[in-house]
């Protein structure tokens, strides 16, 4: 090898090293773009909204006067809607997940259900709003109520619950199933006594992440006609007389946090926009807290379970 060739080789190596360094810089930059935007968003919103965050903000109804307006009906509405969503989506989601993973045979029905779940996850959320408007509100006459909203969001959350349930069940080794079978347990006994208890933690993670998404979802609820100005609370579910529980609140009109925020953002006056920022801080806190709980559960599980 001549000296010349050696120099060429050195130059080539240097050039490649140079491009690699450039790429690493770009890689870090593109990670930073997302993270810096996230920080800018959180800081900007907190600065705008913090002065409005007070006890009074949580305990007042919306108002024409910005300094008296609050989010009482919005956060109560969000909690009730999410309650309905959870009650509807959790059993159906887990049941579908179990069916697809443990029962479904490799035939056309299984394939169709499988393709369906994947497709449903890709449908824009506003389309679910149109389904709810056409079906729940107009055909089934459920009204623009908490029940309609909860059911709409449960359809949206369902694919997430199904997918996480399937992944959780798939992660359980077959030896568990074989052991249960060898002791004479039926299929359902195996699932109920073993598969579900072992996978419930991961399933819970998925459910919480799905519900966190439902908390922030706005478009489908606007589509079914949620109101933005609600100055009353739904009927209380607990009564002092027999039968002590009432379901009238399901039919109540409602508003939720993101819709209240949207309403305040679209107003021209900056005072209401700082109300929107305050509502946004509460909303982000709610969703991030739910995600944090999910991450915490996942972390605990990863440490505990070793097959």
């Amino acid at each position: 090898m001549t000296i010349d060739n050696l120099h060429q080789l050195h130059r080539l190596i240097a050039r490649n090293r140079f491009w690699e360094k450039i790429f690493i810089v770009f890689g870090i930059l593109s990670l930073l773009v997302g993270i810096i935007t996230l920080l800018a968003l959180l800081i900007d919103m907190t600065i705008d909204g913090l002065p409005r965050l007070s006890w009074q903000f949580f305990t007042s109804f919306p108002s024409r006067k910005y300094e008296e307006a609050g989010i009482l009906s919005a956060w109560v509405g969000t909690c009730l809607v999410i309650l309905v969503t959870a009650i509807a989506a959790i059993p159906i989601g887990i049941a579908s997940g179990i069916y697809l993973e443990e029962y479904a045979k490799k035939n056309w029905l299984g394939d169709i259900i499988e393709i369906n779940v994947t497709n449903l996850a890709g449908i824009p959320s506003i389309i679910y709003g149109l389904l709810a408007l056409g079906l729940f509100v107009e055909q089934l006459k459920l009204g623009r109520s908490i029940l309609t909203a909860g059911l709409t969001l449960s359809l949206l959350v369902l694919p997430i619950v199904i997918v996480t349930t399937r992944e959780a069940i798939r992660a359980i080794p077959n030896s568990i199933r074989e052991a249960a079978c060898a002791l004479g347990a039926s299929k359902w006994q195996t699932i109920w006594d073993h598969i579900l208890p072992y996978s419930i933690g991961s399933i819970l993670t998925g459910i919480i992440i799905g519900l966190a998404r439902a908390v922030g979802e706005t478009a489908p609820l606007i589509t079914i006609g949620a109101l933005t100005f609600i100055a009353f609370l739904p009927d209380s579910p607990f009564k002092s007389e027999f039968p002590y529980i009432s379901f009238n609140w399901l039919q109540a009109e409602f508003t939720v946090m993101p819709i209240q925020m949207f309403n305040w953002v679209s107003r021209p006056d900056p005072e209401f926009q700082s109300n929107a920022a305050a509502a946004g801080v509460v909303l982000v806190f709610m969703t991030l807290a739910m995600n944090a709980i999910a991450i915490f559960i996942r972390y605990r599980l990863r440490r505990r379970i070793k097959w």
Binding site: I35, L38, M261, Q273
Partner: peptide, 16 residues
């Protein structure tokens, strides 16, 4: 950190 970006409600992005 990146996944938090996908978890922020879109109405908050609209505000931003």
């Amino acid at each position: 950190c990146l996944e938090i970006l996908a978890g922020i409600p879109t109405v908050v992005y609209g505000y931003f």
